[in-house]
């Protein structure tokens, strides 16, 4: 995903002179193509994420579309107040990119597990929250984020996620995409759990539908209304704490639709997420997913 992101950003930067990339001294062997092609629109802000984020706000105030780029919790939790107050309160054109969502950096430990970011980010007004599920979605989401001057958070996996969608797709901000059609249950996933969900359904021959939600905010309520009329059972799955994450957003969405009278009944929602714990052992992403029972 990160390779898809940077390659696509380079392509867009060739024709969009406002795109500016600011990195927090991370991105070795990833960001160099951008830095080499557009040295006037590249900055390594050093290991100082609060400053990096404030600088991004200042650059955006002067007309740039700024991408901040780092890994795990560093461009998000470390500088949460700069995101909330400098970027979002001023509604600036800054896109915050974090590589290594969830347990992508599994063996590096809890410092590098981004498992509370969605919950924190989605409470901030003006901020779009996105987590594409494969390289195709990454390109589509990047294009849709570039079509708006709103601030946004882009949560990426790491490298090497397989391509799920056979063809390029268009994903307007706030839209989801159906990956599989089935009858019994609708599985809703965000971010890099897409591949795991697809494999699980196919391996077990489940008669399930699979939907990828690359946008956690705004949420595709139209899709939720459609799902609630077709399924009585819904599974949400994410690499994130159960509290406040994607599954919570889905629950809230169903509830708001019911309250507004758009739907007449709530489906049963089984939320698969990290059960309010940290991990204290080393382990790959796959190992941690298994240990935490992030499957269905």
């Amino acid at each position: 995903m990160r390779t898809a992101f940077i390659s696509h950003l380079v392509e867009r930067a060739r024709v969009n002179p406002k795109i500016f990339l600011v990195v927090g001294d991370l991105g070795y062997s990833v960001v160099e193509p951008f830095a080499n092609l557009f040295p006037d629109r590249f900055l390594n802000a050093g290991i100082a994420e609060q400053n990096m984020t404030g600088i991004a706000a200042g650059l955006a105030m002067e007309g740039y579309t700024v991408f901040t780029y780092s890994i795990a919790n560093f461009p998000t939790l470390r500088c949460m107040e700069q995101i909330r107050y400098d970027i979002c309160y001023h509604n600036l054109d800054v896109k915050i990119v974090s590589v290594g969502g969830g347990y992508a950096y599994g063996s590096l430990g809890a410092s590098h597990h981004a498992t509370e970011d969605i919950g924190m980010m989605r409470t901030i007004p003006n901020l779009i929250v996105s987590a594409p599920g494969d390289p195709v979605e990454t390109r589509a989401v990047l294009d849709s984020l570039l079509s708006t001057s709103s601030p946004a958070y882009l949560r990426l996996g790491k490298a090497g996620e397989p391509v799920i969608h056979a063809n390029e797709i268009i994903l307007p901000v706030g839209k989801s995409v159906r990956v599989l059609s089935g009858r019994n249950t609708a599985v809703l996933t965000t971010g890099a759990m897409l591949q795991h969900s697809l494999t699980t359904i196919q391996k077990n021959n489940y008669d399930f539908s699979l939907y990828s939600f690359p946008f956690v905010k705004p949420l595709d309520l139209e899709r939720l209304a459609e799902i609630s009329s077709n399924y009585s059972t819904v599974i949400t799955i994410e690499e994130h704490q159960k509290s406040g994450g994607f599954g919570s957003a889905i629950l809230e969405g169903f509830n708001d639709l019911l309250e507004a009278g758009v739907i007449s009944k709530l489906p049963t929602v089984r939320r698969i997420a990290t059960p309010d714990i940290f991990t204290y052992t080393a382990g790959s992403q796959e190992y941690l997913r298994k240990t935490l029972d992030l499957t269905f």
Binding site: G58, L59, M61, E81, Q82, H90
Partner: peptide, 25 residues
């Protein structure tokens, strides 16, 4: 007013971004 402030320690980084933008342009 260029920037809302109230939480301390926010303006210097933003000012650096503005100054850098002026240099780059």
């Amino acid at each position: 007013v260029e920037l809302s402030t109230g939480s301390l320690g926010h303006a210097m980084p933003v000012a650096c971004g503005m100054a850098l933008a002026a240099k780059r342009k």
